[in-house]
């Protein structure tokens, strides 16, 4: 029995050691990928402490493809970085904020792109591969992603388990590193796309769309604003342009915007709402109802930068 137990433990130790090595190797390879939508590039910048920004841009894909840090930098003469996370609402935008502040110098200003989906919470963990290289024993990633349909308990604590079954047919992890160029530029990507039929399809399926507001996410939003206040980080809420037909499609849009206005009043925050901007009427600047194309995003970012410039006084943005 002793012999069996000792041998089993030795083999188990070897297996665990190999799992740790393989985990490290695969994670490093995965970190080196620059596939769309480039989320891993942003996480790399966060965990490698590469971010030195005066202005941090937060939000979903609407932040990611709408606000160019370069235009902001050129106009305001301040360093900027776009943390927009594709397909996710404020719940995971907050995780990104938390990790960013943990490993990097805090910004002076956060431009938080809000929209009708910010307080919603999806069930699936969209683009879950982005978390894999960093999630082992990471309490924050565990805390904020475990409520989604994505990972199991063991994925957060046992090496290699989260890669089980995801490697077949993706031999790229054992191939030499690619020399692909970055997908995003300081977290931003202008989309050179033309208008698609997403809105038309959605209208065929439903007469209107109603967003479920997740109360936990609203509380988290409040907590975030309090944290920023105590850390003396200025938060600017921005409702970036949405194509007019898309605005009319969301039934409880006004109610959601009122929540942002209430937060703006409560914490004395600047809330720039571009819902009535001219851009919203011009389809050629959008590729779907809620996303500007590259040209549209550049026009919008310039406009945003000008608006911010007009309201700045000693780098302080107030209502």
């Amino acid at each position: 029995m002793r012999r069996f137990v000792i041998k089993s433990l030795l083999i188990l130790s070897t297996v665990i050691l190999l799992m740790i090595i393989a985990d490290y190797y695969i994670s490093e390879k995965l970190k080196d990928t620059h596939n769309a939508p480039g989320e891993i590039e942003v996480w790399n910048d966060i965990y490698n402490k590469n971010i030195d920004a005066d202005i941090a841009i937060y939000g979903s894909s609407r932040a990611w493809v709408h606000i160019s840090p370069k235009i902001i930098e050129d106009s305001l003469n301040l360093k900027a970085y776009n943390f927009g996370i594709d397909g996710h609402n404020f719940w995971l935008q907050y995780l990104r904020n938390k990790e960013y502040l943990k490993y990097n110098k805090a910004p002076k200003v956060i431009i938080l792109s809000v929209d009708v989906f910010s307080f919603a919470k999806r069930k699936d963990l969209y683009e879950l591969n982005q978390f894999k290289p960093y999630m082992l024993w990471n309490g924050d990633i565990n805390k904020f992603t475990s409520s989604y349909d994505g990972f199991n308990f063991e994925d957060y604590y046992l090496p290699l388990i989260r890669y089980y079954g995801s490697m077949r047919g993706s031999g790229s992890v054992i191939k030499p590193s690619s020399n692909e160029s970055l997908y995003r530029n300081k977290g931003y990507k202008g989309m050179e796309r033309k208008w698609n039929n997403d809105l038309a399809k959605a209208k065929l399926e439903k007469k209107y769309f109603s967003i479920n507001i997740d109360s936990d996410t609203v509380s988290l939003f409040n907590q975030f604003l309090l944290e920023c206040k105590s850390n003396e980080i200025t938060v600017i809420l921005v409702y970036t342009p949405e194509y007019i037909d898309g605005q009319n499609f969301v039934k409880n849009r006004e109610k959601i915007i009122k929540i942002y206005n209430d937060f703006s009043n409560k914490y004395d925050l600047l809330f720039l709402d571009y819902s009535d901007d001219n851009l919203c009427m011009q389809k050629e600047y959008f590729y779907n109802a809620s996303h500007l194309n590259k040209k549209g995003s550049e026009i919008f970012t310039s406009k945003l930068a000008q608006d911010l410039k007009a309201r700045t006084h000693n780098n302080v943005y107030k209502k």
Partner: peptide, 18 residues
């Protein structure tokens, strides 16, 4: 012999999960 067992384990991991 041990390498063979590890190779089987590796295959289980590599091709598993479907």
């Amino acid at each position: 012999r041990l390498a063979m067992y590890f190779a089987i384990l590796f295959a289980i991991f590599w091709f598993g999960g479907q």
